[in-house]
Design a protein around this nucleic acid. Structure first.
Lengths: 149, 149
DNA sequence: AAAAATCTTGCAAATAGTTTGTATTTCTTT
DNA sequence: AAAGAAATACAAACTATTTGCAAGATTTTT
């Protein structure tokens, strides 16, 4: 699979790869998402896109997540955050393997969340018989640039 | 420090240890909390206590968390969850060491969240200069008893 | 012990964020 | 081109949290 952040990628094909009908609005929303370097909230995206209705943005995010183009998680900010999958397995496997496998670091001061992709989330032993579907590991604190000030 | 779950503990002393004035309402709320074997939401506690106002319960939880008697986290259910610290370090150190150090497992079917205290959360390398204050590791899936049905 | 100051609580309402109902528009298929 | 299906916008509902304020309780000061 091509990288979702490749500057030369074809957004239309990308949506089709994920079995999402590439409507005009969805392409606009996808382009908007690609402009975010870090996880974003519904609000972030809605403000950025400006002309598209909030409920449309919301329902589009639901579709994108259902089709595993995005994943969502909570970082403690009170707003659900979304981001692209960083692995390339989503389309090929279509299974639970497309769950998020990286750590998120949220700065309490500036509110930004970063993806920590240098290492996968370490697995811990769980209660007997618990079937894992998703793992969410969020570190909260103060980022380097906020600490200087 | 005595265990917060000791059946013979003195709730009044416990609050004082955490620098919380032990009012009648706070003692009722603390006793209510002690009846939950697993993390609970504001709503859980409010319904359980029944006679105490929701905003009072809320503000009490804020105080309990500020004084590090409880910690809170999000498990993806949309409701903030609270639970006692499982370590005994809170009073003695008074530092970031009283942050939650264990994994939570949430069942998508029954909605319950369990504390996985068999092992501490494994540490991962973070961006240069990031100062960790809190770590939240939540596994979502289906628990053993829900899987049987 | 009374008065003043501070903290706590209950009630009501505001806020924030997400989600849904429905009519209209757009797209796809026939 | 017409019919059917899907997507979108607008409005409003819903869920959970949070806050303003007045009344009550507790602590401190005089």
């Amino acid at each position: 699979m091509q990288s979702v952040r490749n500057a030369f990628m074809n957004y239309e094909e990308l949506l089709q790869q994920y079995n999402i009908r590439p409507t005009a609005v969805r392409l606009l929303i996808l382009k908007g998402i690609a402009d975010f370097a870090a996880p974003f909230s519904l609000e972030d995206l809605y403000i950025f896109l400006d002309t598209i209705d909030r409920s449309t943005v919301f329902r589009t995010l639901v579709v994108f997540e259902e089709q595993h183009l995005l994943h969502s998680f909570e970082d403690g900010s009170g707003k659900k955050k979304y981001c692209f999958h960083h692995s390339a397995s989503a389309v090929s496997t279509g299974t639970a393997h497309d769950a998020c496998r990286h750590v998120h670091a949220t700065c309490r001061v500036c509110g930004r969340t970063m993806c920590v992709t240098t290492q996968e989330i370490p697995i811990v032993p769980l209660p007997e018989g618990f079937e894992v579907e998703n793992v969410n590991y969020v570190v909260t604190g103060v980022c380097a640039s906020c600490k200087q000030r």
